[in-house]
């Protein structure tokens, strides 16, 4: 893990994501309580917390994989509601990387990356393939383009998943525990790709347990527990001087 600190986010006022008074229920279970969050363009946010605290649910609400029942979510100035046109626009600008990779097993790596640009962005195949190869080179596996996901290692699959999302040219990337399903020796290769992305100014929201990564890359660390945001701070202050007793408890368990 690189020791040099990443440059802080630009001080622009452009707001990428805004969440106001958001609540979500699963049936009777109140899973997200009064979430208020503002994310500026270029910010890198890490969300951590104990299992079941709702952190995955929170980021899945941001691209409507889950629906919220109360409050507002604004992405790129568009409100995220039942309006299908809004959802479409927002999903084009948010890329998501899953814990289980979710690559399409019946398509090659290259086809995985080209699918959405061709069918959603309506790009010609040649253009889509060029873009895909560029991103596959960035994640350092251009030689695997014609292989199938089943033929790749976990680390390679996750890097393909990142490339696939990047091919849609999003300005925001969501990561839902991207390294939790990987063998230890493969975690670094994926984290390196994510650090590169952060370096280039991508707005990133990452749910993770990798605290080393948080210290290196994050502008802000958010701690959640039982559906609420307990504390948020810059990494140094967060790790050395947690304000809440809950945060302190959590940190003592993982560090």
């Amino acid at each position: 893990m690189t020791e040099t600190k990443i440059t802080p986010a630009s001080q622009g006022n452009d707001i990428a994501i805004e969440v106001k008074g958001m609540h979500k229920w699963y049936g009777e279970f109140h899973v997200l309580k009064d979430i208020n969050l503002t994310i500026k363009r270029g910010e890198r946010i890490i969300i951590c917390g104990p299992s079941g605290c709702g952190k995955s649910t929170l980021i899945r609400c941001l691209n409507r994989l889950e629906e919220h029942q109360r409050g507002e979510i604004w992405v790129d100035g568009i409100e995220l509601d039942d309006n299908l046109k809004h959802i479409e626009k927002i999903r084009k600008d948010i890329g998501m990387v899953f814990q289980q990779f979710n690559l399409f097993p019946h398509l090659t790596v290259l086809e995985n990356c080209c699918l959405a640009p061709i069918w959603v962005l309506k790009k010609p195949r040649r253009e889509a393939e060029e873009t895909a190869m560029q991103y596959l080179e960035r994640v350092k596996i251009p030689d695997q383009a014609d292989k199938y996901p089943g033929q790749l290692s976990g680390g390679q699959q996750q890097r393909v998943a990142i490339a696939r999302s990047l091919c849609m040219n999003p300005s925001i990337m969501l990561f839902d525990e991207p390294t939790s399903a990987l063998d230890p020796e493969m975690i670094k290769e994926v984290l390196d790709v994510m650090v590169d992305l952060a370096n280039e100014g991508m707005t990133m929201l990452c749910v993770t347990h990798e605290m080393g990564f948080a210290k290196t890359v994050a502008d802000r660390v958010i701690f959640m527990d039982s559906g609420e945001i307990i504390e948020e701070n810059d990494p140094e202050s967060f790790f050395s001087n947690p304000q809440s007793d809950r945060t302190k408890l959590f940190l003592s368990q993982i560090l």
Binding site: W25, G27, E28, Q69, R70, S226, S244, D245, R246, K248
Partner: peptide, 17 residues
């Protein structure tokens, strides 16, 4: 050190349950 008081569990909106 703050002692965190948890947000109460609210019932979901009527039209959704």
């Amino acid at each position: 050190m703050n002692v965190h008081t948890p947000h109460p569990d609210l019932p979901p909106p009527a039209t959704s349950v």
